[in-house]
Computed example of a mutant assay.
Amino acid sequence: MALYKLISPNEYTSLLKSSTARIVSVDASWHMPNTGRSGSKEYFEGPRLPNSIFFDIDDVKDENSEFPHMLPTLSIFNKKLSELGLLPNDTLVIYDKIGNFASPRAAWTFTTMGHKGNVYLLNNYNDYVKLSKEDPKSYNLDYSSVNKITSLPKTQYVVQETFVKDQVLSFNDVKQLVDSGDIKNYNFFDARALPRFLGSAPEPRPGLTSGHIPGVQPLPFLSLLDPETKGFLPNKELKANILSFFKENGVEFDKEKPTLTMCGTGVTGCIIKTALEEADLVKSSKLYDGSWTEWATIFKNDPKYIIKAK
């Protein structure tokens, strides 16, 4: 099961009233480079949840990796969270302006790296905004402009135990599964849009081929979200959508097999990871952090490692 929990806008407002722990709202908005949007710019301009900080997945990352927003080392994680003014026991409520896009990745990062306090994923910001228009006192939003990503004083944030081994799949792990044929013993799903998975549409990153890893099957993340708000569908509907997609697209699924997920750069893979766990279809799963960008950069168009539909 996920190390973080989904929380509705109603549950979030109740938490603010009842919790004895310090609650910090975390804007983790991130946008693809081709959208022209900036998560930090929108955070600075507002609106945002009250008392929010901004968490940038392109800043809190492995600085030695050539691939985008790879999971940070423990020393980088501790350093960056100290600069944000967080404490290991803070209760965090993660959200993003799209609804659910980068926020599952951020929630996964906090819990995988061993944050000790409760971590909640708001499902979702757009629902909260709608409620705020109807009842601004109960669902408060901060419309002021700010010029820094946190108003909290610097701390000495330190955690030492992580869940990386339980949550993360490396490039070498995946290559070994492909080379040995053991990949058949796993449910392995790719969150990218079906045309990119099949190799019939280009990747958004220039020069990167499309296609998929042998033995990996598709599960496009957009099919699991409300088309308007981009919130996760209710659990029963979520489960039905997943199983329906599997049936309609000939995707094999065995609940008894361990499950792995991936995407373009390890962001939307966290969406399908969360969805599979929320729908109670898998007990736990791991994310291939480097995902397609790492795999396709290394193997380019090698037909042994990159499959395209004929």
Results as ranks from 00 to 15, higher is better:
Met1Lys: 14
Tyr4Ser: 09
Lys5Cys: 02
Leu6His: 11
Leu6Val: 01
Ile7Ala: 06
Tyr12Cys: 13
Ser14Asn: 15
Leu16Glu: 05
Lys17Met: 12
Ala21Ser: 15
Ser25Gly: 02
Ser25Thr: 14
Asp27Ala: 07
Asp27Arg: 05
Asp27Gly: 05
Ser29Glu: 07
Ser29Tyr: 08
Gly36Met: 09
Arg37Met: 11
Arg37Ile: 13
Arg37Phe: 13
Tyr43Trp: 12
Glu45Ile: 10
Pro47Thr: 05
Pro50Val: 11
Phe55Cys: 02
Asp56Ala: 07
Asp59Lys: 11
Lys61Gly: 04
Asn64Trp: 03
Asn64His: 14
Leu71Pro: 02
Leu74Thr: 10
Ser75Cys: 00
Lys80Trp: 00
Ser82Cys: 09
Leu86Ile: 09
Asp90Tyr: 03
Leu92Tyr: 08
Ile94Gly: 04
Ile94Gln: 00
Tyr95Val: 10
Tyr95Phe: 11
Ile98Leu: 06
Ile98Tyr: 07
Ala102Phe: 03
Pro104Lys: 08
Thr112Phe: 02
Tyr120Asn: 01
Leu121Cys: 07
Leu122Gly: 03
Asn124Gly: 12
Asn126Asp: 05
Asp127Thr: 09
Tyr128Pro: 06
Val129Cys: 10
Val129Phe: 02
Lys130Cys: 02
Lys130Tyr: 02
Leu131Asp: 04
Ser132Met: 01
Glu134Trp: 00
Glu134Lys: 14
Lys137Tyr: 07
Thr150Asn: 00
Thr150Gln: 02
Thr150Val: 01
Leu152Asn: 13
Thr155Gln: 09
Thr155Trp: 06
Gln156Leu: 13
Tyr157Gly: 11
Gln160His: 10
Gln160Met: 01
Asp166Lys: 13
Gln167Asp: 08
Gln176Pro: 00
Leu177Ile: 00
Leu177Ser: 07
Asp179Gly: 04
Asp179Ser: 12
Ser180Asn: 05
Gly181Lys: 14
Gly181Ala: 10
Gly181Phe: 13
Asp182Cys: 08
Asn187Ala: 12
Asn187Met: 10
Phe188Ser: 01
Phe189Glu: 06
Phe189Cys: 10
Asp190Asn: 15
Ala191Met: 03
Arg192Met: 04
Arg192Asp: 00
Leu194Gly: 03
Pro195Arg: 04
Leu198His: 04
Ser200Cys: 01
Arg205Lys: 14
Gly207Phe: 06
Ser210Tyr: 09
Gly211Ser: 04
Gly211Val: 05
Pro214Trp: 10
Gly215Asp: 08
Gly215Arg: 09
Val216Phe: 11
Phe221Gly: 01
Leu222Asn: 14
Leu224His: 08
Phe232Lys: 06
Asn235Phe: 11
Lys236Cys: 00
Leu238Pro: 11
Leu238Met: 10
Asn241Glu: 12
Phe245Leu: 07
Glu248Trp: 06
Glu248Gly: 06
Gly250Tyr: 05
Gly250Asp: 01
Gly250Phe: 05
Val251Asn: 05
Lys255Trp: 01
Lys255Tyr: 05
Thr261Ile: 05
Met262Phe: 03
Gly264Tyr: 03
Gly269Gln: 10
Lys273Ala: 03
Lys273Ile: 04
Lys273Met: 12
Thr274His: 02
Ala275Leu: 10
Asp280Ile: 00
Lys283Arg: 11
Ser285Leu: 04
Tyr288Gly: 05
Asp289Arg: 02
Asp289Phe: 06
Ser291Ala: 12
Ala296Thr: 12
Thr297Val: 09
Ile298Thr: 13
Lys300Asp: 06
Lys304Trp: 00
